[in-house]
Design a protein around this nucleic acid. Structure first.
Length: 265
DNA sequence: AATCATCGCAACCGCTCGGGC
DNA sequence: AGCCCGAGCGGTTGCGATGAT
């Protein structure tokens, strides 16, 4: 147990008061206080946590503890082979943009993915036949393959899309109502509605790609079979990633989160 | 059994970005 | 326009756990 830097500031009637931030591992009691605070006040304004929650931690530390460890929608346990392949592919595409990669892995944090990469792939990547290079090559081949398939299927999809359009329009009304409710209930700093919608569109593209990638081993031709609607559904489920890391895979825990937090927000 | 090396992960640090004033 | 502050991100560190010798 150790104590961190001393923050000095003028408080009250010009009296210099020293504020000492606690550092190092979190205790169970600190965790309990932080969870209780978030339950009551939701996320955001982390710097006020120290005052309001009775924690001698700075806002940064509180945010990190919540995001990386206490958040109820976190997925525990080892990284699965599927998740590993996603990490490889996305790292090949985006490099060390851990938070971006984490958005495609519901329940996983950027810190967790970063640590996983460092311990599992960084050494391998030093050799000429490094994993990242291979992944990059695979990605190129898949993109070429995907483009060809897209061209072939474009005509077929146009016909199908027309048929689906009517039913889809009907469904979208319900979905948008749900999202409206979701966005309303989950505060997310500096994320305007239009930004979220834009991000949703990007996510939809990514989901389509990931879907094809995950199906690559079992049936290489199955990915292009994925209908535009399925891809859209995946994207819609993951729109929550931009402000809460939610997807179908974490649906159950999400309800747990709302039970814990949302009723108070 | 003791020592050393390695691994895995939680936590910290420094920087950047965006919003408010 | 410039400054300040809060939040988020990627890089790094520290330490306990585990395995090898």
């Amino acid at each position: 147990m150790y104590w961190g830097e001393v923050m000095a500031g003028h408080v009250g009637r010009g009296v210099l008061e020293e504020e000492v931030w606690r550092k190092g591992p979190w205790t169970a009691e600190e965790d309990r206080l932080l969870v209780e605070y978030v339950r009551l006040h939701c996320e955001g304004r982390w710097n006020s946590v120290a005052r309001l929650a009775g924690l001698k931690r700075n806002g940064k530390s509180c945010r990190l503890r919540w995001v990386n460890y206490l958040r109820p929608d976190l997925k525990r346990g080892q990284i699965t082979p599927q998740e590993e392949s996603i990490i490889l592919e996305l790292h090949a595409r985006w490099g060390n943009r851990w938070s971006t990669i984490a958005r495609s892995l519901p329940g996983r944090t950027d810190n967790e993915i970063k640590n996983y990469w460092r311990t599992h792939f960084k050494k391998k990547a030093k050799s000429p036949s490094d994993a990242a290079e291979k992944a990059r090559n695979r990605l190129m081949r898949k993109q070429q393959f995907h483009q060809q398939q897209q061209q072939q299927q474009q005509l077929q999809q146009q016909h199908r899309a027309q048929q689906q359009q009517m039913q889809f329009n009907f469904d979208m009304k319900g979905i948008m109502a749900m999202l409206e409710d979701d966005i309303h209930r989950t505060p997310y700093k500096s994320q305007s509605r239009q930004e979220m919608i834009n991000m949703h569109q990007n996510t939809t593209e990514e989901q389509g790609y990931l879907y094809s990638m995950l199906n690559d081993n079992s049936s290489a031709s199955s990915a292009p079979e994925t209908s535009a609607e399925e891809v859209l559904w995946d994207g819609l489920w993951n729109i929550d990633d931009v402000h809460g890391n939610f997807s179908v895979a974490s649906a159950a825990s999400r309800f747990g989160l709302y039970n814990l937090v949302a009723p108070f927000c």
